[in-house]
């Protein structure tokens, strides 16, 4: 969790909540001036806690394809087979580094059941990236991709980057959708494609980061007007070259699949 504070009035920076909590917990009306100063000291020593950009992601796809598990694997680096089904939307966030720039991903994990589509559609607004997930062991989740894509095209901004993920590739023995089919679908619809496993973590990191790299490139190429937040991008402080990013430090853009 990040806390927004201001540095020298001109340079906006985020620091992680645990620091601000540490120092602001005693913020009675008299003690805050001091605590702010302490926070700043932390800040100076950890510039990597700030971000240059914030990207909004949305994870969509049929119920039970592993959307929440992908998110959890990405944010917490763990697989939790037993978790509550998603009602409405859940949030996750993580820092990554692209081109030596710290980027914060704010990820919206949506409920997959058909009935909730009308609600889910309202979450597309302002998303820079989407992970469209299907389950390689359940054919029907692949068959429904077109309708998900239609929703996304209709309700998201046209420049949204979409990553197609064939999840559960650890269950190769139960595979019902071939890698080639996935690739073919992605090619036809202009999506990035990867097979991944939330369980083994295979390609999870890569999927999120590759999507971010694509968005980042679009920014560099001037596709987005980043001052317009309807593109799902918020600008942080922009310039400070962080050494190695947040907790991942990974800039790998590994693609491929595990099929």
């Amino acid at each position: 969790m990040l806390r927004w504070i201001c540095w020298k009035s001109t340079v906006p920076v985020f620091i992680e909540q645990r620091y601000s909590l540490l120092f602001l917990v005693s913020s009675s009306s008299s003690g805050v001036g001091v605590s702010i100063r302490l926070s700043l000291r932390i800040l100076i020593s950890s510039p990597s806690m700030s971000y240059a950009y914030l990207f909004k992601y949305i994870i969509i796809g049929d119920t039970g394809v592993g959307k929440s598990c992908l998110l959890l694997q990405f944010t917490d680096k763990r697989f939790q087979p037993v978790h509550d089904l998603t009602i409405g939307v859940e949030f996750g966030a993580r820092m990554i580094t692209i081109d030596n720039k710290p980027i914060k991903l704010q990820i919206w994990d949506t409920a997959g059941q058909e009935s909730f589509r009308s609600i889910t559609r309202s979450y597309y607004r302002g998303a820079a990236g989407a992970l469209l997930v299907y389950d390689i062991t359940r054919r029907e989740t692949f068959n429904h991709l077109a309708s998900w894509l239609e929703d996304a095209r209709q309700h998201a901004n046209a420049n949204m980057t979409i990553m197609l993920i064939g999840n559960k590739c650890d269950l190769a023995h139960r595979r019902a959708v071939s890698t080639e089919e996935g690739e073919q679908f992605a090619k036809e619809h202009g999506l990035i494609f990867m097979e991944a496993s939330a369980k083994t973590a295979q390609n999870v990191e890569e999927a999120f980061i590759k999507t971010a790299a694509t968005i980042y490139k679009k920014i560099q190429d001037g596709v987005f007007d980043v001052s317009n937040e309807s593109y799902g991008i918020k600008v942080g402080y922009g310039g400070i070259p962080g050494p190695s990013g947040g907790r991942d430090g990974s800039t790998s853009q590994g693609g491929g699949c595990c099929g």
Binding site: L2, C6, S9, V32, I36, G236
Partner: peptide
């Protein structure tokens, strides 16, 4: 958090 523009001067926190 995240609400950049509404906090230009967080020193008044």
């Amino acid at each position: 958090n995240e609400n950049h523009h509404s906090y230009p001067e967080k020193e008044h926190l």
